[in-house]
Amino acid sequence: MISENLVKQITFIKEIDKIKYIQRRTKLFNSDRRENDAEHSWHLAMIAIVLSEHSNDDIDLLKVIKMVLIHDIVEIDAGDTFIYDQTKNHENTTEEKKCAERIFGMLPEKQAEEYLQIWMEFEDGISNEAKFAKSMDRLEPLLQNASNNGGTWKEFGVKYETVYGKQKTIKKGSTTLWGYAKDLIEDSVDKGILEK
């Protein structure tokens, strides 16, 4: 006999397949194809594993991986908000929390509570794990835009000050990676792919 928990877990697994259809504005490295949320989340998990030694603080890497894998699941309902959107707040957690409660609520109660808590911890950005996870979330599109000769910076007229302001979150999770990011931003200005 199939347990109720397994039925709920399979239902959730089917539901989150929808994340593959959520298109982001950023494009794959050296490509004209937009990345989807599933690709983004997978890439962040790999980046976190590879770069974990550069965290400012000791971290629970498994927790970071969970954070980056589930942080955008809410976009199944809420849609993707472009990090440089000037009309919609990227930190719209009230709307997104309702989405998180619906989607994670499909799981058995204990798992639902764990995933919602991890999602909220990421959004709050206070714990060592959340700071590092958010650093990964900001680093990836920076690397993508630099690889695409300005990518969405050029496409949407995003200027240096905005990029710098959004990217400085990296420093909270890793001063080493922030140093790299700052150099990349300045190099992008020098190359003319980011307007000052």
Score class of each variant (00 low, 15 high):
M1C: 09
M1D: 08
M1T: 09
E4Y: 09
N5H: 10
L6Y: 10
L6W: 09
Q9Y: 10
T11Q: 14
I16A: 02
K18H: 14
K20M: 08
K20W: 09
Y21H: 15
Q23C: 10
Q23G: 11
R25N: 15
K27N: 12
L28K: 08
N30C: 07
D32H: 11
R33E: 13
R33V: 10
R33F: 11
R34H: 14
R34I: 07
R34S: 14
D37N: 15
A38Y: 09
A38V: 04
E39Y: 13
E39D: 10
S41F: 06
A45P: 08
L51V: 11
S52C: 11
H54W: 13
S55I: 00
N56L: 08
D57Y: 05
L61C: 02
L61R: 01
M67N: 00
L69D: 04
I70Y: 04
H71L: 05
D72M: 06
I73T: 03
I76S: 05
D77G: 02
A78N: 12
D85S: 15
D85W: 13
Q86L: 13
T87I: 12
T87W: 10
K88L: 14
K88I: 14
N89I: 06
H90Y: 14
H90P: 01
H90E: 12
E91M: 10
E91Y: 12
T93D: 10
T93M: 07
E96I: 00
E96W: 04
K97P: 04
A100T: 02
E101Y: 01
G105L: 08
G105M: 08
M106I: 14
K110T: 07
K110E: 12
K110I: 07
Q111V: 03
Q111A: 05
Q117G: 13
W119Q: 01
M120G: 01
M120K: 12
E123A: 09
D124H: 07
G125F: 02
I126T: 12
F132I: 06
F132S: 01
A133V: 04
S135A: 15
D137M: 11
E140L: 12
Q144G: 00
Q144M: 13
N145T: 00
A146L: 07
S147F: 06
G151N: 01
K154E: 04
F156V: 05
T162H: 13
T162V: 14
Y164P: 02
Y164I: 10
G165Y: 02
Q167T: 03
K168W: 07
I170R: 03
K171T: 00
S174P: 04
L177Y: 03
W178K: 03
A181K: 01
A181W: 02
L184K: 12
E186V: 06
E186D: 13
S188Y: 10
S188M: 11
V189T: 08
D190T: 14
G192C: 09
I193G: 00
K196I: 02
